[in-house]
Amino acid sequence: MQIFVKTLTGKTITLEVEPSDTIENVKAKIQDKEGIPPDQQRLIFAGKQLEDGRTLSDYNIQKESTSHLVLR
């Protein structure tokens, strides 16, 4: 499924993911596309910070959901 990640600069990154993917996996995909190390990434969805060990389905992130990327 596709999800979108919006950066603070207003850029939207499109990612191909599975509901069973962990947040860690998603951060690795963002690193592949954008070159941002996962330890600098914070992903926010529905006002919550997403934890590495959880999956997209844990957070009820469905296709075409948009989460926000904040850099630390």
Rank of each mutant, 00 (worst) to 15 (best):
I23K: 00
D32H: 11
P38H: 10
V5F: 06
T7N: 05
E34R: 04
L69P: 02
E34S: 12
K27M: 07
R54A: 08
A46M: 15
K27W: 03
K63L: 11
E34Y: 08
R42W: 11
E18A: 12
K29N: 03
P38R: 13
E34T: 15
L50E: 01
K48Y: 09
Q62P: 10
D32M: 13
K48N: 09
L8G: 11
E34M: 15
G53M: 09
I23S: 01
Q49P: 11
G35S: 05
Q49S: 09
E16C: 12
P37G: 04
V26W: 01
E24A: 15
R54T: 06
E64A: 10
N60I: 04
I61A: 02
T14L: 10
E51I: 07
I30N: 00
E34A: 11
V70P: 02
L8A: 13
R42P: 01
G47L: 03
A46W: 09
L50Q: 01
N25A: 14
T55A: 06
E24K: 11
R54E: 05
A46Q: 15
K29F: 05
V17K: 00
D58T: 04
R42Q: 14
K29S: 04
Q41R: 01
Q2P: 06
E24Y: 14
L8W: 15
P37K: 07
N60F: 06
K27D: 00
K29T: 03
T9H: 13
F45L: 08
K27G: 01
N60Y: 06
V5Y: 03
E64C: 10
P38Q: 13
K48M: 14
F45Q: 03
V5N: 01
V5C: 03
P37T: 06
A28E: 09
D58Y: 15
I36W: 13
L43F: 03
V5K: 01
D32F: 12
T9E: 11
I13E: 01
R54W: 10
Y59F: 04
E34N: 08
L43S: 00
T7R: 06
F45S: 04
G10Y: 04
F45T: 02
D52T: 05
R54K: 14
E18D: 12
N25F: 12
F4S: 07
A46D: 14
Y59E: 02
V70Q: 10
K11W: 08
T7Q: 06
P37E: 07
L50W: 03
S67L: 15
A46S: 09
D32P: 02
T14Q: 10
F4Y: 13
K6C: 10
H68Q: 11
G53I: 06
Q31I: 02
Q40F: 08
L43P: 01
L56S: 00
I30T: 01
S57T: 08
S67G: 15
Y59K: 01
D39F: 11
A46N: 15
T55L: 09
E51F: 06
T22H: 04
R72F: 14
G35C: 05
T14K: 08
Q62V: 12
K6E: 09
S67H: 12
L15D: 00
T12C: 12
T55C: 06
E51S: 07
E34D: 06
L69R: 02
G10V: 02
R72N: 11
Q31C: 11
P19W: 08
T14E: 09
G47T: 04
A46K: 15
H68R: 07
I61N: 02
E16Q: 12
Q31H: 14
E18C: 11
L69I: 13
V70S: 07
R72V: 15
Q40I: 10
D52H: 06
D21L: 05
M1D: 02
K27F: 03
D21A: 07
L43N: 00
N25E: 12
G53F: 12
T14P: 06
L71E: 06
E64I: 12
T7Y: 12
Q40H: 10
T9F: 12
F4K: 09
E64L: 12
V5G: 01
S65Q: 09
E16T: 13
G10P: 02
K29D: 02
N25V: 14
I30L: 07
I44M: 13
R54F: 13
D39G: 10
T9W: 14
K33A: 12
P19M: 09
I36Q: 02
V26F: 03
V17H: 02
K48F: 09
R72A: 13
D39C: 13
T22C: 04
Q41W: 05
D52R: 03
M1H: 05
N60W: 04
I3R: 00
K33I: 14
I36A: 03
K33R: 10
L43D: 00
V17P: 00
S67E: 13
A28D: 06
G35Y: 03
K6T: 13
S20V: 05
Q40R: 11
D39I: 09
Q40N: 09
K33E: 07
I3H: 03
Q62A: 10
E51G: 03
L8K: 11
M1E: 02
P38A: 15
D32I: 13
D58L: 03
K11Q: 09
D21N: 06
K33C: 07
K29R: 07
G53E: 09
E16M: 13
R42G: 06
N25W: 09
L56D: 01
D39V: 09
R42L: 15
L8V: 12
V5W: 02
V70W: 12
T55V: 06
Q40V: 10
E18M: 14
L69H: 02
I3V: 06
H68E: 10
Q31P: 01
F4L: 10
Q2W: 12
I3E: 01
S65D: 09
G47H: 04
F4Q: 08
E18I: 12
Q49A: 11
R54Q: 08
F45A: 04
V5T: 01
H68K: 07
T14C: 11
T7C: 08
T9K: 11
L8C: 15
K27T: 01
G47K: 04
S65K: 07
N25C: 11
Q41P: 01
E16N: 12
T66K: 10
D58H: 10
G35D: 05
R72T: 14
F45E: 01
I3F: 05
R72E: 15
M1K: 03
E51L: 09
P37D: 07
E34F: 09
L15H: 00
A28H: 13
L50I: 04
G47Y: 05
Q41V: 09
M1R: 03
F4D: 05
F4P: 03
T12W: 13
A46C: 10
V26K: 00
D52Q: 04
T12Y: 11
G10S: 03
S67M: 15
E24G: 13
Q31S: 11
F45N: 04
K11P: 04
Q2D: 05
T22R: 08
K11F: 08
I13K: 00
K33L: 13
D58K: 02
L50R: 00
L15T: 00
Q41M: 13
P38M: 15
V26R: 00
E51V: 08
I13P: 00
T55I: 06
L50A: 03
I3N: 00
D39S: 12
K29W: 05
Y59R: 01
K29P: 00
T22W: 05
P37M: 06
H68N: 08
T9Y: 14
D39N: 11
R42D: 11
K48T: 13
T14M: 13
I44F: 15
R72M: 15
A28M: 14
L50H: 01
I30W: 01
E24N: 07
L15Y: 02
T55D: 03
I61R: 01
L50Y: 01
S57K: 12
K11E: 07
V17L: 05
L43W: 03
V17R: 00
Y59W: 02
G53R: 09
D58E: 10
V17A: 05
I61L: 06
K11D: 07
